[in-house]
């Protein structure tokens, strides 16, 4: 049962990777990496059950946190060229 779930998730990860490689814009790549991260969270959780060690769920939780922060950080970096604070004439500062 858990092997089925892992296989489905791995296929989806492969498709997400294809989108990340093909692009064409940088936003497509960020989107693909975001989806890849969500699938990684599922894969870590499923792996915990596959191995009979549910402690892996802690790792999945932490990975979900890192994935969110990472996506926001990369998005800000791409759109602003810095992680910066909002400035007066920088309209995108509070993304």
């Amino acid at each position: 049962m858990f092997a089925t779930a892992a296989a489905a998730v791995l296929i989806s990860m492969l498709l997400a990777l294809i989108r990340a490689v093909r692009g064409p814009t940088v936003y497509d790549r960020i989107l693909a990496v975001n989806a890849f991260g969500t699938l990684t969270v599922i894969l870590i959780a499923v792996h915990g059950y596959l191995d009979g060690r549910p402690e892996f769920l802690d790792l999945a939780l932490v990975y979900a946190l890192i994935n969110f922060i990472g996506t926001i950080a990369v998005t800000k970096y791409v759109s602003l060229s810095h992680l910066g604070l909002p400035t007066k004439d920088d309209d995108g500062g509070d993304i």
Binding site: Y27, I30, L31, N34, F68, T71, I72, T75, K76, V78, S79, G92, I95
Partner: peptide, 8 residues
């Protein structure tokens, strides 16, 4: 995250 990306 999706909204931030759409905005960007």
């Amino acid at each position: 995250a999706t909204h931030a990306l759409a905005r960007a």
